[in-house]
Structure formats: C-alpha cells, structure tokens
Simulated assay, not measured.
Amino acid sequence: MKSYTPVPVKVANNKNRKLGTWTPEVFTYPPVEEFKGWSVKDTTPLPYRAFKHTYFFTMGIRSMDWNSWIELDNEWMKYHNNKVERIADRGHELIGTDPVVWDAAIELLTEFRNFLPTRYPTLFKKTEKGINNLVTGEVFEFVNVPRNEFKKDPMEMAALMVQDDLAILKEDENGQYILKGGAIMLAGFWRLRDKLNLPLSAIHTTGDVPKYNEKLKRPMEKFFSRLTCDKPVVRNNYFLQTDADLAWSSSIGPEDKEVVGWNTAEVATDINKMYYRSERQSVRRLPISGCIVFTIRTYFLPITKMCKEPYIPKRLLDGILSWDEDVKRYRGYEKFHGLLLPYLEEQAKIQEAEGYTVDTEPDSYPF
C-alpha cells in the first residue's frame, strides 16, 4: 500500500471534489465495544425478518451502529468452510481485486484488523503484521507487505475473516461507481464475473431489478456521491429460494450456465425445500481511498422453521400478496406461489387461533 498523508475533512474538501478524485481524510473509527459473551459455538444469528405487511420499493437505508459493522455468530464456521470449499473449486471466478483498488482492499483489511479483534477477541488476535484467527489457526499478513509477496488476494483474506460477501466500488471521472473488487462467494443468485467493472446502475439493470431506473437510480447515485466517511448505513432485503444451497441456488440452473434465472427454474413442489434468504448490507466510504465498501451478510433458514415464529406467516403472506407484477417476476413468484401461499395461509390461521393477530403484532422491523 502506498504511503498517504490524510488531512482534516475541511481541508480535504471532498464535498467539492473533482469527480473520480479523492483526498485522503483524517478519520478515526469510533471506539468499538467487545461483544461480551460472544461465542463461535453459541451466539445465534440475529433474526432479521425484513418484510412488512405491505411491500414498498425504496432504498430502505438506516444509520449503522458502529459496533455492528460486521455481525458474526455461531454459523461462522459453516460459512467459513463453505467459502474455503468454494475458493478451492472456483476461486478465480469468485474473487478479484483490480489494481486500481488494491490499496482500498488493503485499507479494508486494516479496518478489519482494528475492528474484528476488538469486537470478537475470542476469534481474532491483532498482530504486528495483520490478524490471526484463534479458532482455525489462519494467519493473515498484510501490514507493510509488498504486493508481490501477498500469499492471497486481499479480498480473499478479508472474506475468510467474516461471513459476508464483500465488494469495493470506485468512482470514475463521470461520477459513476464501478465494481472493481470483490469476494462474492455466497450470493445465491448472481456472479462476480457478470458484474465486475460495471457501474452501479448496470449492476442493477442487468439483474432486472424492478423500477430501478424509475425509482432508485437517481436517489442511489445522489446518495453515493454524497456519502461521507462518518455516515455509514445498513439496509436489509429478502428473497425466497426453492432449494437449500446457500452459495448458489441450484434450482435456477447450474452456476456455469451462461444464462440463468427464475425463467430457467423448475416449479417448487416441496415446502421443506423453501428457504428464506435475507441480506443485511452495510455501506461505508473508506477515508483514505474514498472507495465505497459493501458488506453483504446473508441469513438463510427454512421457511418451515421461520413460520413457527409468532406473526411471521401472516406478515410474509401479506407482503408477498402486495408485490406488483415487476416484483413478482424479479422474485420468482410464478415458481413457488402455488406451494408457498397455501402453506402461509394455513400457518397464519393456526397462529390467529392462538391469538397472534395483526392487531397484537409489535412493530419490530427489520426483525
């Protein structure tokens, strides 16, 4: 990583920067609290249930709690092992760091070096050269290491520390944010090779995100251009999946097939293979490089398990029924509605008979 001399925010004046440029800023991450009692074996995943009775198509961003930038739980080892297997099988397709964001990737590792051992000291230890994993024995060295001596791509290193997929976007001279680096291993429905070097708008339009141009393009571009280092955000989304494969949804077709999607998927016939898939994304601007980092943590569990939770079947049922035609196509409605909706209706009636009605439901989004 090059040597940089960051300057105070007012001196850097990045608010008025020329597009595609960035002056390194002085920024100190707020003090991080240790997650008391956290255990790689016992700390259960947060129960994100990111749907409401009525579906609204918005960015849905919220301010990020600095302590919760990276959320880990007792599924860490499962996700880690899945990533290790995926790297061995097809690593070159899942990981990439363009030279223009190499320093940003090292900056991300540096941020992890400061955050992870403090937040999760039973899993990570900060060392002179980087981070050691106290459970797996992995050693990650990247501090003052010449580029030609790196044993792994820096994005691979970062991804092996967390349960998230990771992406780095860099602003170009037109003000567009381009995907230039990533470790996308557990995305389920999309592949890094299809999105690398695309601007933010094309990432969404090539994925057929409904109403992107009409409702999201301008707000998102405005948000990205104005995002400051001290105002990170998070957002949640959700999908329904018709198989139990976290890394790649096999029901839409083979991962190596050129064109895959809901149009190539089979109609779902087994409710026990229906899964709820929810992403918790954080968005931060890095102070030295000015690049934007996405962390994409996927939460994944069977519909049958989730529907045992109070109020969930009715809320999910109503949310799906409120989708318009564009959203239905995007989310694969035709492939599972005949199976899922009757099941949700049945489970909702059972819960209503037990007193779990819309009138008594607490407002706890995104949980």
Rank of each mutant, 00 (worst) to 15 (best):
M1F: 01
S3Q: 13
Y4D: 01
T5N: 12
P6H: 02
P6N: 05
V7R: 04
P8D: 10
K10D: 08
G20P: 02
P24H: 07
E25K: 05
V26L: 14
T28L: 10
W38R: 03
T43A: 11
L46F: 11
A50D: 01
K52N: 10
K52P: 00
W66G: 00
L72K: 09
N74Y: 12
V84F: 01
E85K: 08
I87P: 03
L94K: 06
L94A: 05
P99A: 03
I106Y: 14
L109V: 06
T110W: 03
F112G: 08
F115C: 09
P121K: 12
P121G: 02
T122Y: 12
F142P: 09
N144M: 00
K151R: 09
K152W: 10
V162T: 13
L186A: 11
S201A: 12
A202V: 03
I203T: 05
V209H: 01
P210C: 05
N213V: 07
F224A: 03
N237M: 03
D245G: 03
I252Y: 01
K257V: 01
I271Q: 08
S282L: 02
V283T: 12
G290P: 08
I303Y: 09
T304N: 10
C307S: 14
D318L: 12
E325A: 09
D326W: 02
R331Q: 11
L339P: 13
P342Y: 07
E345L: 07
Y356L: 09
Y356F: 15
T360M: 02
E361R: 11
Y365A: 04
P366V: 08
